[in-house]
């Protein structure tokens, strides 16, 4: 083996160490990928990582709060007026919504199908740290102490953002629907066509593969979650179809869509507990 300067002959060579550590890495990767063998260890490690994440997020946090501090009175008043107007509008629509929900429940009872109970939602703040390059994950400041579980859906005001994939005490990691490893079952709001939306790793595009040329889907269609698979609650907007390319050489359409949730801006997200299935431990890819 190679002889390294300054190292006694008894110590293992670099090559030996590389081989041993590679074996260890491969074993770790297999355990981590297949099954929940490492769940406990992962939770512990994530909890240890939290202080480092806080340090890394500190500059952005300070800058944001300074910006808040120096917001002028005029801006605040304008914001306030805008929000009040918006609130009126939303309340007005909510009245109608409640009536509709009751009607929906009555109709469901008549059909003897399971009544859908409203979902419980809490807000969570983002911890501003970057994930591994070219993955789409965010860290939120709510963890198992707050009842967050793996597989839980995360939404914002405009649609589904993703799902919780790792939980620690005070924080959890959310894989966004744009991550290359993520898939979510959807239904076309217009035609009730079922499909699956996959992430690509790009920050603002998702794709809808495996649809043939005769599928009833058009540019501009809204895809909402179908609730199939039990991980995501049904009926939340997911993405809007942007572009459909029909290449005769390919067996499937190439469909690009844009997530409706604002995945890249905003510092607040909402965690959803499903009204009908509070304990569904969904599984991610």
């Amino acid at each position: 083996m190679i002889n390294v300067f300054g190292r006694s002959l008894g110590a293992p060579s670099h090559l030996t160490r590389l081989v041993l550590l590679s074996a260890l890495s491969v074993a770790l990767m297999m355990l981590d990928h297949r099954g929940q063998h490492l769940e406990k260890i992962r939770t512990g490690l994530n909890t240890l990582a939290y202080p480092i994440q806080l340090v890394a997020a500190a500059p952005a946090y300070v800058v944001r709060h300074l910006a808040d501090f120096f917001t002028t009175r005029g801006t605040l008043r304008a914001d306030n007026e805008k929000l009040l107007a918006e609130r009126q509008l939303l309340l007005a629509r909510l009245q109608q919504f409640e009536a509709l929900e009751q009607e929906n429940q009555r109709l469901r009872q008549m059909l003897v199908s399971a009544a859908q109970v409203a979902d419980k939602v809490i807000a969570a703040e983002l911890v501003e740290v970057s994930a591994e390059p070219f993955t789409r994950k965010v860290v939120v400041a709510k963890g198992s102490h707050d009842g967050v579980y793996v597989g839980q859906s995360v939404i914002d005001a405009h649609g589904i953002m993703g799902q919780v994939t790792q939980v620690a005490g005070r924080v959890s990691r959310v894989t966004l629907i744009t991550d290359a490893g993520h898939a979510i079952p959807v239904v076309n709001n217009r035609s009730s066509l079922r499909a699956v939306v996959f992430g690509t790793g790009n920050p603002d595009t998702v794709k809808v593969p495996y649809l043939t040329a005769n599928a009833d889907i058009k540019e501009g269609d809204l895809l909402v979650s179908s609730g199939m698979g039990g991980t995501f609650p049904p009926g939340y907007p997911v993405a809007q179809v942007v572009k459909i390319i029909n290449d005769p050489n390919e067996s499937f359409l190439s469909i690009t869509a844009k997530p409706t949730a604002r995945l890249n801006h905003g510092k607040q997200v909402m965690l959803v507990w499903r009204g009908d299935a509070p304990k569904s431990g969904g599984k991610t890819k």
Binding site: L21, V26, L28, M29, A49
Partner: peptide, 15 residues
Amino acid sequence: ILYGSLLGSNALAKA
């Protein structure tokens, strides 16, 4: 750990 990536992937590459 900090990236939340597959445990061991970056470790192997860096080694």
